[in-house]
Simulated assay, not measured.
Amino acid sequence: MSAILVTGGTGTLGTSLVTRLRAAGHDVRVLSRHSPDFPVDLRDGSGLDTATAGAEVIVHCASSPRGGDDVAAGRLIEAARRAGTVTNLVYVSIVGVDAVPLGYYRTKLEVERLLEASGLGVTILRTTQFHDLVARVVDTAAKLPVVPLPYGVRVQPIAVTEVADRLAELALPTPSGRVPDMGGPEIRTLPEWGRAYLDATGRRRRILALPLAGKAYAGFRRGGNLTPSHAVGRVTFAQYLAERGR
């Protein structure tokens, strides 16, 4: 089986992916700042050549909303070129990076473009937001007496496990280019998801749907972050919450 390097391999998505790849018999290298085997910070690139040496496939899951993803991707591309063995660099992106002018989304789009222009074989998968992110957003807002959530923003959350399954399928020596998007099975407004989360966690709080300003908010209101024609996910938010509760 081929050697596969997973960046961000100790994160929520990366951990799930690594488990699947190893179960399939692959030689998997886990790269992250906290990895015991390949502790690499992609923003400075130290140790990256050792991690990529002899790897045939790289699945790039590492990402930071605080910035620097474009720099990290540039270093990863350079290391993959130096390795000379990488035939497929798989990248997980976000639905709407070309439709919602949010800073983080713009950076993710720039990473896609860097990969496409790299001369390497690449596979790009865009997904909608994870169930975990929706829960985290609501949980943070619920620390206040009234729960403020953006008015009119619809979200189509998907299970991390289903994205990991798809990435495991794509982690082949042969690249696939831009593959069809992945979206969750249901679309509701963030306040509606918030109510479901609060009810499931036993909190009786009032949700305040607040209109926001700016082009990014307008992009979300237009549904740029949604892919209803690719609602391939099967795990609902209610099922996610039930499993989380257990």
Rank of each mutant, 00 (worst) to 15 (best):
S16A: 14
L48I: 03
T15S: 15
R29A: 02
S229E: 13
V160E: 13
A209R: 06
Q239C: 03
V100M: 00
R33F: 00
Y105A: 09
G245A: 15
F220M: 01
M182A: 10
T128L: 04
L21S: 08
A135V: 11
R204F: 13
H34N: 07
G224D: 03
P180L: 06
L5W: 06
L76Y: 05
S2Q: 12
K108V: 01
Y240I: 06
P191H: 01
P145R: 13
A168K: 11
V18F: 11
A142R: 05
G11E: 09
I124L: 09
G184E: 04
G223S: 07
D132R: 12
Y105T: 08
I158L: 15
V155A: 06
P36N: 08
G183M: 04
R106C: 03
T123L: 07
V137E: 13
R244Q: 07
L144V: 11
R81E: 12
A99K: 14
E243F: 03
V30R: 04
R22G: 06
V30C: 03
G223W: 03
A171E: 07
R206I: 11
T201K: 04
G202I: 09
R206A: 04
V160C: 14
P39Q: 02
T107R: 10
Y197K: 04
S118P: 10
R113I: 04
A238D: 11
W193E: 04
P36R: 09
R222H: 13
L241Y: 07
L76Q: 06
R195M: 01
D132F: 13
E186L: 05
A141S: 12
T87E: 13
T128M: 05
A209Q: 05
S118L: 09
T10M: 05
V153Y: 02
A3Q: 12
P173W: 01
T174K: 15
T87W: 14
I207W: 00
R33A: 00
G183D: 05
G223E: 05
L13A: 14
A73M: 07
G103Q: 03
T161L: 09
A142D: 10
